[in-house]
Write a protein that binds this DNA or RNA. Sequence first.
DNA 1: TTAGTGATATCC
DNA 2: GATATCACTAAA
Length: 172
Amino acid sequence: MNKKLDYDFFHRDKLTVARELAGKIVARRNPDGGVIRVRITETEAYGGEEDKACHASKGRTPRTELLYGKAGTIYVYLCYGMHWLMNIITGEEGAPEGVLIRAGENYSGPAKLTKAIGVDKHFNGQSVCGNKEIWIEDDGKQFDIVADVRVGIDYAGEEWKNKLWRFIIREK
DNA sequence: TTAGTGATATCC
DNA sequence: GATATCACTAAA
């Protein structure tokens, strides 16, 4: 039986959450009542005041405010005018930490994933805990997790670029 | 490789 | 008010 991940799961270190979130399932309820389930195949940790790759490192603004919020909060960000990227806030309230859902099964990019499950700014600021429209499930399946460097953040500089904060699953 | 897209932040 | 930036994708 699938188990919904609650606040306690996200209320931990971002690297722990990112690692464990890989291989989990994001579930999305359609308006017509059906449920779409997508296995998360790739996650990426962001956060820390010093992480230059994290939006919040450039200063606390209305947009990044959510990153400082409560664990389990969904942070949806419109990138390049047409792509929705989905993050889930982790760690302590007041710390700008989050995990980016970078890819799902059959979806090779973060924007494809959100497009496939119909995520948009409507979900920004909501929580995945106790949410009836979108939530994260654990079906108990285990995967090997591979850590790798983050991508798409060249602007953050070598120091932060080379951190092994990206997690990819591999079938066991 | 480059174009496209629009919200946000930063500069007048 | 204006412009520069951006955690991407698709097309070539």
